[in-house]
Design a protein around this nucleic acid. Structure first.
Lengths: 201, 201
DNA sequence: CTTGCATTTGACCGACCAGTCAATTAGTAT
DNA sequence: ATACTAATTGACTGGTCGGTCAAATGCAAG
């Protein structure tokens, strides 16, 4: 087994960047190969189709996201609410970074693909759905810890985690539509106060 | 002048339905013409390009949305909070209807196009951005009325309206990704409690 | 009946699409 | 060296893309 297949990785990275900048449908296999400095035959040596490349891309970069970004935001020495706040900060920094690098605010890489392909490719839809569920699991655990510590009143932590993800996806979509990452700063904080199923309400 | 140009209207309606079901990039001009029962030359007689058709489509159906759906939800005899609740109900009913009719939950027609084309076509991006702003204007007015009546504490009504739109866009995106309109029911209500810039917080 | 414009047709264009394949090259194991 | 496989090349296919165009048709005013 080869430890890191260079060509395969370059294809994945090129596809990820191109899809993020311009969407799945508007990026061709040829262009992905050109950016990776590879011929088309090599693409189909490593991936049976554009769809399969996309599935691999989603899995591998989500694992990287969890290991690097998420592990830092959700680290246990922070209080639960600090973790959610760090998550929000990460989103703002990422949107601002892409704005500086590309001149455009590109939104959420997963939300973009979910929006474009959920109705077109059932396999990809299910994959992104399961990634979103994994994400909300981390958020839900954080919320449960917050409830146990008394930081927030009891609530439906699973539904609240889903609602928080929904809000941040919507915020990123609006930031993309406005082409302005500052939207995240202006309205992002409200994610901390979203609650579903509190006994009081 | 002809009062209602049948061919043009059929092209717009076909494009709207196809774009909503499958996205801009994955629907060709040929297919739009086929559904409208028209040859390609007719398409380019009425619209100089696919982009221009899309701009016309956005404007005309947004006007229709405001006149029919929005005017009903935001009618003055309802209390401000009832209007927001009616807005949410409309969204749920619409997502459920498309699920029943097409077997798929398709999300927000404008959010979908915004996500796909904001980074690809600056003109379309600006158009959708301005439609979103028009939408938030109605919400902001409702929030200001709620503040004046003492239904809610004072807040940054403009930012809160944007946050509410963001949340509902996110909810529709997750409903689409989950392919389940019930998501809207499960977490939608939280939109009523979103606040930005309250003096207390 | 004629003029003139709006509408519609359907063939056509070059470019690009995802995907195929036989042939070559590189690397490894014996 | 040999043999086997993995990796890579680059030409190729059939089909679709957005868009063009000259010719035909419909229609209304004089």
């Amino acid at each position: 087994m080869n430890q890191t297949n260079n060509t395969r990785d370059r294809l994945l990275k090129s596809a990820r960047d191109l899809f993020y900048a311009r969407s799945y449908g508007h990026v061709g296999v040829k262009e992905i190969c050109d950016m990776a400095g590879v011929q088309k035959g090599s693409f189909y040596h490593f991936f049976p189709s554009k769809q399969e490349l996309t599935l691999a891309l989603l899995d591998e970069y989500f694992a990287e996201l969890k290991a690097n970004v998420f592990a830092r935001a959700f680290r246990p020495e922070l209080t639960p609410l600090q973790r959610l706040s760090a998550w929000l900060d990460n989103i703002y920094e990422f949107q601002k970074l892409t704005q500086e690098q590309t001149g455009k605010t590109l939104g959420c890489p997963y939300g973009n693909i979910a929006s474009e392909l959920s109705t077109l490719d059932e396999t990809i839809r299910q994959r992104i759905d399961s990634l979103f569920i994994k994400l909300t699991d981390d958020v839900r655990n954080t919320l449960e810890e917050a409830v146990q510590k008394g930081d927030i009143p009891p609530c439906d932590t699973a539904a609240t985690a889903t609602a928080m993800l929904a809000y941040l996806e919507g915020v990123m979509l609006l930031a993309k539509t406005r082409n302005d990452p500052e939207i995240v700063r202006r309205i992002g904080d409200a994610v901390l106060h979203i609650r579903i199923g509190t006994t009081s309400a």
